[in-house]
Design a binder for these strands. Structure first.
Lengths: 199, 199, 199, 199
DNA sequence: GACTAAACGAGACGGTACGTCCTGTCTTATC
DNA sequence: GATAAGACAGGACGTACCGTCTCGTTTAGTC
C-alpha cells in the first residue's frame, strides 16, 4: 500500500510524456542526431521546455527514453524466436530480418542515435543492456538452449559468445558501413556460427 | 633543385598543424567528446580559430585528422603481423594486445570519439575505412593468406568475414561495455574463428 | 435582500487575502521591485498562485493593493493636518515628517515600487490618484483653506498648484536621489511656498 | 600615451554599437518598457545577443545608454538658454517647450523608461545626474545668474532650489498624470517661481 | 454528524525571455 | 602574407517566472 501526498496529475503527465517521446522519436528519425534540439522536440510536442527538463536531465536521456518506450510498447507481444526445430533455418530468418531492419533509413537514424548515446554514456549503456539488450538476448538464448537439447549446438557453448559471433559482425558492418547487409551475408553469419559452435 | 620566391611558410604551417592536431588529441583523451570545443583546441594549440577552419571544415574533421595523424606516425614502422608459423599463437598475441589497448582510458576516449564521428558521418566513415581500416585489414589478411598456404585456414574462406568474426565481437563488447576484455576472451575469439574457418 | 446558495467562505477569503497582501508588502520592502515575483508572494503567504490570480489580474495590481491596504488601515484615524493657527509651523511639521518617512529604507523601497507601477500604468495611476492622493490632498487643502480664511495665504491661490510647489520638489529630489532630504530642506520648501502664495 | 594589446576592432564595434543603441531607442519609443526585450533589440539591430551582453550588463544599462547617446548627439549644439533680457519671457518659452515635449507619445514612453530605471537603480541615477541632468541644470543656472545680475532674481537664492520649484511640479504632474501640461500651466510655474524668488 | 460545493495549496503545464556558450565567419594589428 | 586574437551573427542551451489549468483537500454551511 502506498501513501501519496500531492494531487495526482497523472493524466496530463502521461499525455505530455507521450507527446514528448513521440516528437523525439519522429525528429531522431528525420534528422541527424546532432541536429535534433530540445527546443525542436518541445515545439513539435506542443510542450514547454521546462516540462521536458522536469523529467529528463539531458537530450540523451529523452531520446533514450523515447527509444526505450518504443520497444516497451511491443513488450506485450512475444519476444520469442521462431522454433521450427531447425536452428539454421530459424536463425537465418531472424538474421535476415535484422539485416533488413538496419537498412531502413528512419530506423537506421534512430539506432545510430541510440548507439551514439550509449557509446558515450556508461549509465545509459547499463540501462540499455538491462532494459533492451538482455531481454532480447534472453529470448535468443532460449532458442539456443532448445537447439542444444536437440543436439544442434555444442552443449558446452558459451551462449553469450555465440550471440556475439552471430550478431557483432552484422552490427559492426552496419555501424561502419563497411559492407552491404544482404540476405546472403545474414545467412553466412549463421553458417559461420554453426560451424564454430556445432556439436 | 627548386626556387621559392617568398618566405617559406611551410615550416610555420607544419608547426601550427602539429600543434592543432596534438591539442585536439590531448583534449579528446581528457574530456568527453561533446565537451571538446574548437575554441579549446585553438587555445590549447596557441592558434587562432581561423587557422583551424582554414584547414578543416568542422570539429569532426579536425578530431578525425588528429586520430589519423596518430596512426600515420606509426606508418614508417611495420604494419605487419607476427608470423611464427602458428596462426593461433600469432592471432592470440594480436587480439590480446588489442583488448589491452581498448582498456586504456585515454585511448578508450579517443576511439569512442572516432567511432561517434564515423557512425554519424558517411564521408568520414569512408575516409576511415580507406586510410585506417583497410591498410590494417590488408596486413591482417596477408597473415591469413600465409596461414591458408600453410594449411591452417580454409583456402576458400572469405577473409573479410574471417576478420569480422574475429574482431567484431571484441569491438561490440567494448563499445557497449557489455563484458570485460580479458586475455581469455581474446583467446576464445581466436579459437572460435579457427573452429569456424579451420581447414 | 439577497439569496445566497452556498456557504459563506468569507472568513477564509479574508484570511488568505490578508496573507497575500502582507506577503507582498514584506517582499516589496525587502527586495528590489523587479525581483518580487508572484511565486514568491504565494510561497510566502502559504497560498496557491491561483488564489492570487483569482483576485488580482497582475503583479502590479497585487502590490498596488498591498500598498492601498496599508494606508486604508490608517483610514479610521484622522487624515487631518494639524492646525495650530500658524500655517508655516504646521506645514513644516508635515513636510519634515514626510522627508523623514521617505528616508526610511523599507518605506523607500515600497514607494519606489508604487511609483514604478503608476508611472507605467495609467489605470493604476488613476486609481492611485482617486484612492490615495486625492484624499490626502483634500486633507491638506482643508488646512490651506483654513489658512486662506486666516489671511495667511492668498485667497485666490490655486490650491492644487500650492500643493505641487510644496511637495513636488521633495518628491523629485527623492525619486532621482538628487539631494538630501533634511529638515532644513523641508522647511525651505514651506518658506518658498509661502513666499509665492502669501497674502 | 596608452598601450593597447589586441587589435583595434573599433570600426565594427562602433557600427554594431550604434545599431544596438538605435534599435533600443526605437523599441522603447514603440512599446511599454517592460515589453522591450533584449532579444528584440538584438533582432532589430541585426546583432547577436552576445554582442549586447559583451558591452552592457543588463537591459536597463542598454536602454540607459541609448538615451544618453541620444542627448550626446545634441552635445555639439548649444546647451544654452535664450537670454532676451527678460527672465519671465525666457523661462516661459523653455517651460512651454518642455511641457510640449513631455506630451509627445514616443518621447513620453522613452522618458518613462528612463525614469523607471533611474528610480530603481542608484548607480544609473548617479550617471543620469552627472551626464544628463547636471549639464542641463548648469545651462539653466547660467541664465538664472544672468537674471540675478540684472536684478530680476534674488541674488541670495539657492539656484538648485529655484530649478526644483520651477521643474518638479511639471515633472510630477507628468509622471503621475495628475493634470494637463498646458502652456498656461507652464507659465504659471514661472510666475510662481518668480514670485518666490523675485528680488 | 454526514454531506456538499466553493475555495483552497500545491504544483504541472505551455510559453517567453533570460543570460551563457559555442560555432563558423570576418576583421584588425602584428610578426 | 599568413597569423593570433578575438568580435561578430546566429542559435541552442538550461533556468526562472508568467498566467492557466488540474488535481486532491479543507472548510463552512445545510440537511
Amino acid at each position: 500500500m502506498t501513501y501519496e501526498k500531492g494531487p495526482d496529475h497523472s493524466r496530463r503527465k502521461e499525455r505530455s510524456r507521450q507527446a514528448i517521446l513521440s516528437a523525439a522519436r519522429a525528429l531522431v528519425m528525420e534528422e541527424a542526431y546532432e541536429k535534433v534540439t530540445v527546443e525542436a522536440i518541445a515545439a513539435r510536442a506542443g510542450v514547454g521546455k521546462q516540462t521536458i527538463y522536469r523529467r529528463w536531465p539531458s537530450k540523451s536521456a529523452i531520446v533514450f527514453a523515447a527509444l526505450l518506450a518504443l520497444s516497451e510498447d511491443a513488450d506485450g507481444q512475444s519476444v520469442t524466436l521462431p522454433d521450427t526445430g531447425d536452428l539454421a533455418t530459424d536463425l537465418k530468418l531472424v538474421m535476415r530480418a535484422t539485416a533488413h531492419e538496419f537498412s531502413d533509413p528512419p530506423f537506421d537514424k534512430l539506432i545510430r542515435a541510440l548507439n551514439t548515446e550509449i557509446a558515450n554514456d556508461p549509465a545509459l549503456a547499463a540501462e540499455y543492456r538491462e532494459k533492451l539488450a538482455q531481454p532480447l538476448d534472453e529470448a535468443k538464448k532460449t532458442r539456443l538452449r532448445s537447439a542444444q537439447r536437440a543436439g544442434q549446438l555444442d552443449p558446452e557453448a558459451d551462449l553469450d559468445l555465440v550471440l556475439e559471433v552471430l550478431y557483432a559482425p552484422l552490427f559492426q558492418r552496419w555501424l561502419h558501413r563497411s559492407g552491404p547487409l544482404t540476405p546472403a551475408y545474414a545467412d553466412s553469419l549463421v553458417d559461420v556460427t554453426l560451424r564454430a559452435f556445432g556439436p
